[in-house]
Simulated scan of single mutants.
Amino acid sequence: MDSIKIQRQWLKSNFDIVDSEDTDQGKKLPQPPIQKSYEEHEEIIDLPEVNKNVIKKNDVFDCFMDRKSNRVYKEEDISLEELSFLLWATQGVKKVVGKTNFATFRTVPSGGARHPFETYLVINRVEGLKKGVYRYLALEHKLVYLFNEEAMDEKVTEASEGQKFVASAPVTFIWSCIPYRTEWRYSVAAHKTILQDSGHLCQNLYLACEAIGCGTVAIGAYNQKAMDNFLKLDGENEFVIYVAPVGKIEAK
């Protein structure tokens, strides 16, 4: 029971004990980058411009009413236009503010406009993309191809605690968290904010999927170390925080 009470502290606001002058931002320490860097030699894929043509359900009331978790997907591929829309809906950058790229305004809210997430994609069936793992470059609205490896499906299934549909879905979103982006501003109050922000991400994915005839399901039950290792993350300064497979579903 004591361990449960300790974990509950993550759910509580700690802003009353934060002195803004004692945060790294208050100390005028360098701000962490708002996006992970990539090398010029890496394979970069341009995404189609986001538009409304992929939307099949325009009534937001219907999207809310019909939204549910889906674990069974059709064998049908997802188009690159549809993937572009889903990425924009979950982390799309509308505006960069500040002379030194201080913050981004996106399609989802984030405490202090810190947006501490990176979007990784396990691609199985997306038109125009080879199978493998990619990362979304939100600032440029592009993808960077990372890797493919043998037995990838088995590794993702194992990391997902045996949930095979996570590995076999046309595309699986895996969001990582770089906590220092938020800690830099909010110190010990950052972590509740990060957890709230991750919910914003996945709810937008649910509604965006519903609008284009796809389905998803929020996955919080995964093996942390195995999932971090799969994406080659250090597990400390960057680690997986949420998983969501996506695929076409039968029309209601």
Score class of each variant (00 low, 15 high):
Cys209His: 05
Ile241Ser: 01
Glu39Tyr: 06
Glu49Leu: 11
Ile44Gly: 04
Ile4Gln: 02
Val144Leu: 07
Val188Phe: 04
Trp88Thr: 04
Glu40Asn: 15
Ala103Thr: 14
Leu137Arg: 12
Glu127Thr: 12
Ile4Arg: 10
Lys68Ala: 10
Tyr38Phe: 05
Trp10Gly: 06
Thr157Trp: 05
Lys142Thr: 08
Gly162Gln: 11
Asn124Leu: 10
Tyr134Asp: 10
Pro116His: 00
Asn223Cys: 06
Tyr38Glu: 06
Ser110Ala: 02
Phe64Asn: 12
Ala113Ser: 14
Ile249Phe: 04
Lys5Ile: 12
Asn58Arg: 10
Asp2Asn: 13
Gly199Leu: 04
Lys164Ile: 13
Glu236Lys: 14
Pro109His: 06
Leu86Ala: 05
Gln163Met: 09
Met152Cys: 12
Gly98Tyr: 06
Glu42Met: 08
Gln35Arg: 14
Ser69Gly: 12
Met1Phe: 14
Gly235Arg: 07
Lys5Arg: 12
Glu238Trp: 01
Ser3Phe: 11
Pro32Val: 10
Arg71Gly: 12
Ile194Val: 10
Ser198Val: 08
Asn124Arg: 13
Leu83Thr: 03
Ala89Thr: 09
Ala169Leu: 06
Gln9Asn: 09
Gln196Phe: 07
Glu76Gly: 02
Val122Glu: 04
Lys52Met: 14
Ala221His: 09
Glu236Gln: 06
Arg67Phe: 00
Ser13Glu: 07
Ile241Asn: 02
Leu201Gly: 05
Lys57Met: 11
Lys5Ser: 13
Gln163Tyr: 07
Ala169Gln: 08
Lys155Cys: 07
Asp19Thr: 05
Thr100Gln: 15
Leu129Cys: 07
Gly132Pro: 04
Arg8His: 11
Arg114Glu: 02
Ile123Arg: 11
Ala113Tyr: 14
Ile174Ala: 01
Val133Thr: 05
Lys27Gln: 13
Glu238Cys: 00
Tyr136Trp: 06
Ala167Glu: 02
Leu80Glu: 04
Pro179Cys: 12
His115Ser: 00
Ala208Val: 11
Pro48Phe: 11
Lys56Glu: 09
Ser168Tyr: 09
Glu40Ser: 15
Ile178Lys: 00
Thr182Val: 05
Met227Lys: 05
Gly247Trp: 08
Ala169Lys: 03
Pro30Asn: 12
Val18Thr: 10
Ser3Tyr: 14
Ala244Asp: 07
Asp66His: 08
Thr104Phe: 08
Thr90Pro: 02
Glu250His: 09
Val122Phe: 04
Val108Ile: 12
Lys57Ile: 15
Asp62Glu: 15
Ser176Gly: 05
Ile194Arg: 00
Tyr206Trp: 00
Lys95Arg: 11
Phe102Cys: 12
Ala189Pro: 13
Arg125Lys: 15
Pro116Ile: 00
Glu82Pro: 00
Asn204Pro: 10
Asp197Arg: 00
Ser168Asp: 03
Met65Lys: 12
Glu183Asp: 09
Ser110Tyr: 00
Val166Asn: 06
Glu81Gln: 10
Pro33Met: 09
Leu143Val: 08
Glu118Arg: 01
Phe15Lys: 10
Glu161Ala: 14
Ser69Cys: 07
Asp153Val: 10
Lys68Arg: 10
Ile4Met: 11
Leu143Asn: 05
